[in-house]
Amino acid sequence: MRSDSDFRAEQAVAEIKRVDREVRRSSRPAAVWWLACGIATALYWSVMHFGVEPLETLAIVGWLVFTAVSAYYICRLGACARSLHRLMRTLTVVFLVATVLNAAVNRYVYDGEGVWPVVVGVAGILLAAVPPLYGGWRGLRELRDPEGEESATS
């Protein structure tokens, strides 16, 4: 960063765009995390709904590891872009609701026999996994380099 006293408007605009790009770049890992979360969620609930021991224990251990790694990963983020932050708030609420529903399905639905527990289980997995996958994809799209796109100064 310069400290010139002769500071042109074009230079100011260029600096705003540069810093905006840096913030987007720094926020991308959060979008990637949502993609990973979508895949991990699909795997976890697939095993919990339809798997047998020792896969269930393995899934629980895997989920704990994923949570610990996520906490470390997210704490290392330097900045969070505004657009992604708004998206993350919605995703978090949907994700928590889907988790509670899947836990309820896992606890109560599998006492029954037949096709419908499978249908409910698959619906639960989709409900839990699709929002984070969509959020990650949309986040990465919104955080693309704004060169030629709308940015803070246009």
Partner: peptide, 11 residues
Amino acid sequence: VAALAAAEKAE
């Protein structure tokens, strides 16, 4: 300010 305008918060 430009960085904080693009970000919700920054470290």
